[in-house]
């Protein structure tokens, strides 16, 4: 997939409480979660982000709670891709399960406002603003298949259609 967008850059250890605070978890509607996305890391994010923009961050993005509300809120914000130096594991699997694209790469050279062109299949990240190209770690085969199958629920529905019986 080819993507182009503007970056919102965050630091290390952005936890799921920062991505979507627990005070909003009495609701799981993506549209309501979107309104508070990244609120405790950048209160202006929800009003400034545009469809197609990217999130970039340092290490351990999405640490803490298992709340799937976190990748859901990001996806509902129109952000198709998160690039970080590393991801916490539950956030990592949740993102693949719901079809939010994530790439692991050295994000030190990426700043807020940079325009990136990303070839997610090749893992190539071109920073148009800075004229630098960085390479993301390849996505494991199983995860790539999960994404191309449309996420875990699509896979589940297919399994039922193909005759799964309890």
């Amino acid at each position: 997939m080819l993507l182009k967008g503007k970056v919102f850059k965050f630091g290390d250890n952005i936890d799921t409480d920062a991505i979507i605070p627990a005070r909003y978890l009495n609701d799981s509607d993506p549209e309501n979660l979107r309104k508070h996305c990244m609120e405790d890391a950048d209160p202006s994010f929800a009003s400034n982000v545009n469809k197609g923009d990217f999130i970039a961050a340092g290490v351990n993005f999405g640490c803490g709670s298992s709340r799937e509300h976190a990748p859901i809120a990001i996806k509902a914000s129109g952000v198709p891709l998160v690039i970080a130096k590393s991801f916490a594991r539950i956030f990592y699997r949740n993102s693949f399960n719901i079809g939010l694209l994530i790439l692991e790469a050295d994000t030190d050279s990426i700043d807020s406002g940079d325009i990136l062109e990303v070839d997610s299949d090749k893992g190539e990240i071109k920073n148009i603003t800075k004229n630098i190209t960085i390479n993301a770690k390849p996505i494991p085969k199983f995860m790539a298949e999960l994404v191309s199958a449309g996420g875990l629920m699509e896979h589940a529905r297919k399994r039922v259609k193909e005759g799964f019986k309890k």
């Binding site: 298992s66 539950i90 949740n94 399960n97 719901i98 875990l152 629920m153």
Partner: peptide
């Protein structure tokens, strides 16, 4: 729930996942 890892204390393999995993 991320703290599902608690049951490792009993000698179980136990881990936190997301809601979609739970549905599956």
């Amino acid at each position: 729930d991320s703290h599902t890892c608690t049951y490792g204390a009993l000698g179980a393999f136990s881990t936190g996942v997301g809601s979609t995993d739970l549905a599956y």
